[in-house]
Amino acid sequence: MASIGYFLSCEQYGPKELVEQARAAERAGFERLWISDHFHPWNDEQGQSPFVWSVIGALSEAVSLPVTTAVTCPTVRIHPAVIAQAAATAAVQLDGRFVLGVGSGEALNEHILGDPWPSPGVRLAMLEEAVEVIRLLHRGEQVSHHGEYYEVQEARIYTRPEQPVPIYVSGFGPQATKLAGRIGDGYCTVMPDADLVRAFRESGGGDKPVQAGMKVCWDADREAALDRAHRLWANDVLPGQLAQTLPRPQDFAAAMTLVPREQVAEAIVCGDDPEAHLARVQAYVDAGVDEVYVQQVGEDHEGFFRGWSEQVLPKLR
């Protein structure tokens, strides 16, 4: 059976709330943590965006669960050499229980310094080189790298964990998923898509871990839960490349007005029927996912953690 973790949303909650949720998740029996890395939320209604590396430092003192970034973009907004240092420190703080999840990013977060937003193929090439730079630095030797996209001069990371930080690569389409299979120590996704999991494994991923995130809106009032999910997270079901190319939270808010409420109901489990939550997790397990991370977008966190602890997690085990 898959391992079940909790998904901390830096787009929706502030740093202190995230630490409290992590504590509650550990008490409820969740086994690990995912945490998003954003400069902006997807829309102003979500309303938060703390610096993920500060939150991870706090998590290392608050809980004993493993943590994965889901996901960091190490290509445009932050140079991969800086991400390498941040990840190494996080791994030391967490006693080796840290995974660096990386992806090719979104214009929403990466355009802020005025850099051009590259085409998908270029973004994946940048990601591949960035991962190479991070792994070189994690060896602890002095590194000089003169690549197509990145320059590193005589850099050495001194604070490092005993073992190199595992790097999992995200992919939401065939091209990115095959790259993840080729260069990743694992794979991150948000869809229960057996074809993508198979593509990862057949492209070199083999039996490496597959992580996936899912959202729920636990609330006794299913209609109210669906209203909230639609207002906050309709961006999850935007079509095509909109999620990667729209630059501002207000652009996402405008695009979200085109998303039917019923479409959000299909993507996000709403209400407090444990069987519905179990069925959604099972879809990920059936797709071949090893670690499922659950994000509560509803207001009733106490009800969510109690419901999952008493009615969902025991049945999954």
Rank of each mutant, 00 (worst) to 15 (best):
A220W: 03
L226K: 08
I83Y: 03
P247Y: 10
L33E: 10
S36F: 11
L258K: 15
H138L: 06
G14E: 13
G206W: 01
V289I: 07
G204W: 00
R248E: 10
P15V: 15
F30M: 02
A234Q: 02
H40M: 13
P80T: 12
A243V: 06
A220H: 08
Q296A: 09
V264N: 01
W117G: 06
S104Q: 12
V197L: 02
E154F: 10
E223L: 09
E61K: 07
A176F: 05
V102E: 08
F98T: 03
R27S: 14
E151L: 15
R97N: 15
L108F: 01
R261F: 12
G271V: 06
P274C: 12
L136C: 09
A84I: 13
E17I: 14
G307V: 12
P116M: 07
G47P: 05
A253G: 01
S144W: 04
Q93P: 00
V294N: 00
W53Q: 07
F98W: 06
A229L: 06
S309I: 04
S36P: 10
G181V: 03
A91M: 08
G205K: 05
H146L: 05
L94Q: 01
A180E: 13
L137P: 02
R32L: 13
T177V: 14
A180W: 00
G173S: 11
K16R: 12
G29F: 05
L258T: 15
L136F: 06
G29H: 12
G204C: 04
V216H: 01
P164F: 09
I134K: 01
P166F: 05
Y187P: 00
T68Y: 05
L258D: 14
Q311A: 15
E275C: 12
F51Q: 03
W34C: 11
L196I: 03
P80K: 08
K178A: 14
V102H: 05
T68W: 07
Q48W: 03
A265H: 09
E11R: 04
F39P: 02
W53S: 07
D44L: 15
G307P: 00
I183A: 06
D185Y: 06
G307N: 07
G103M: 08
A176H: 03
T159I: 08
Y149G: 00
I56W: 01
A62T: 11
V55H: 08
C188Q: 15
F305L: 09
P41W: 15
P166G: 09
V169P: 03
G240L: 14
P50Y: 02
I167V: 13
W218C: 11
G173Q: 13
I56F: 02
A212D: 01
G96I: 08
L179C: 11
A265L: 02
V165L: 07
